[in-house]
C-alpha cells in the first residue's frame, strides 16, 4: 500500500514536471503591416495588425482534456450537435481519456470552432483572427516575412501533399519561428475566429454569390500573392467549413489582445 502511494506520488510529480516543461505559453507579438492574400477591400491588401499575444503551440490533447474535465458540457457524447459534428474528439478513447494515436503532447484535432472558442474563452482568450494567423505564419526561423523565399514556400507546400492518414507529430517537434511560435506550418490546420468571413466582394445581391469561394473572383485575391498556394489552401479549407465541423487535421491555438509597448 505504501509502495502504491509512493508510486502514485512519484508519477504525479513527474506528470507535473512534464506539464511544466511542455505547457504552451502566450508570447507577445509586435504588430505591423503586411500584404495579405485576402484584401481588406478590393485592391487593398496592405493589412495593419495590432500587437497581440498568442499561444506558442497549438492546444494539445492534454490541455483540451483538462478543459473538458472542468466543462463536462464539452465532453464527447455530451456536447450538443448544434456545436459539434459526430466526429468530435473521435480519436480519443473516451469522453475523458486519450488514445495512443492522440497523445498528450499532440495537438488536439477533431474539434469544432465552437469547442475551440469555448476553450479559448475559458483561458480568458479568443481565437486569433485570420490576419493575425497569417501574419505569424509568414515568418520562418529568422525572418518575420519569409514569403518571398521560393524554397521555403515549397517546403511548406510539400507538407500538404503528405497529410492524410499519417500520425500527427507532437507540438514543438520543429524549431520555433522568428516570433518564438511553433507549428504554424507542417503540423495541423488551425481555426481562426473569423473563419466565416471569407467573402470579399461588397454587396452580395447576386443569388448564390455568398456560397462561392469568392477569392477566386477577379480582384478578390491580390495577384501579387498568388504564388502563396499554401496560404490560399488554408483559406479555401477554412471557407468550406461550418462552425460545428471537425476534421482529423484541424486544431487551434488561442490569442489575446496585446499590450501596446512603450
Amino acid at each position: 500500500m505504501r509502495n502504491l502511494i509512493y508510486t502514485i506520488a512519484v508519477l504525479a510529480v513527474l506528470a507535473g514536471f512534464a506539464q511544466l516543461a511542455q505547457a504552451s505559453e502566450f508570447v507577445q507579438i509586435s504588430g505591423g503591416e503586411f500584404r495579405s492574400v485576402i484584401p481588406e477591400a478590393e485592391g487593398d491588401n496592405l493589412i495593419a495588425v495590432d500587437d497581440f499575444l498568442v499561444q506558442d503551440t497549438p492546444v494539445t490533447n492534454a490541455e483540451f482534456l483538462r478543459f473538458v474535465l472542468h466543462r463536462p458540457e464539452w465532453q464527447r457524447g455530451t456536447a450538443v450537435s448544434l456545436f459539434v459534428d459526430d466526429q468530435y474528439l473521435a480519436t480519443w478513447d473516451g469522453p475523458i481519456s486519450l488514445a495512443p494515436e492522440s497523445g498528450p503532447q499532440q495537438p488536439v484535432t477533431q474539434v469544432s470552432w465552437f469547442a475551440a472558442n469555448a476553450y479559448c474563452e475559458s483561458q480568458n482568450a479568443r481565437l486569433p483572427s485570420w490576419y493575425e494567423w497569417e501574419y505569424l505564419a509568414a515568418a520562418n526561423d529568422d525572418m518575420a516575412d519569409a514569403r518571398h523565399l521560393a524554397e521555403w514556400r515549397q517546403g511548406i507546400l510539400s507538407w500538404y501533399s503528405q497529410t492524410g492518414g499519417d500520425q500527427i507529430a507532437d507540438v514543438r517537434s520543429e524549431p520555433a519561428n522568428y516570433y518564438q511560435v511553433f507549428d504554424t506550418h507542417k503540423l495541423v490546420w488551425e481555426w481562426v475566429d473569423d473563419f466565416n468571413a471569407f467573402l470579399v466582394s461588397g454587396d452580395n445581391r447576386e443569388q448564390g454569390g455568398a456560397d462561392q469561394l469568392q477569392f477566386c473572383g477577379a480582384g478578390a485575391i491580390s495577384m501579387e500573392e498568388k504564388e502563396n498556394y499554401a496560404i490560399l489552401m488554408r483559406v479555401a479549407m477554412l471557407s468550406s467549413l461550418e462552425a460545428r465541423y471537425t476534421t482529423r487535421n484541424l486544431g487551434f491555438r488561442c490569442a489575446r489582445q496585446g499590450e501596446v509597448r512603450q
Partner: peptide, 16 residues
C-alpha cells in the same frame, strides 16, 4: 460570430 456560426451565415467588416 457564434450566432452567425449556428446559422451558417458569413460576414466580414470592410474598412469603410
Amino acid at each position: 460570430r457564434k450566432i452567425a456560426g449556428v446559422l451558417g451565415i458569413k460576414y466580414k467588416q470592410l474598412p469603410d
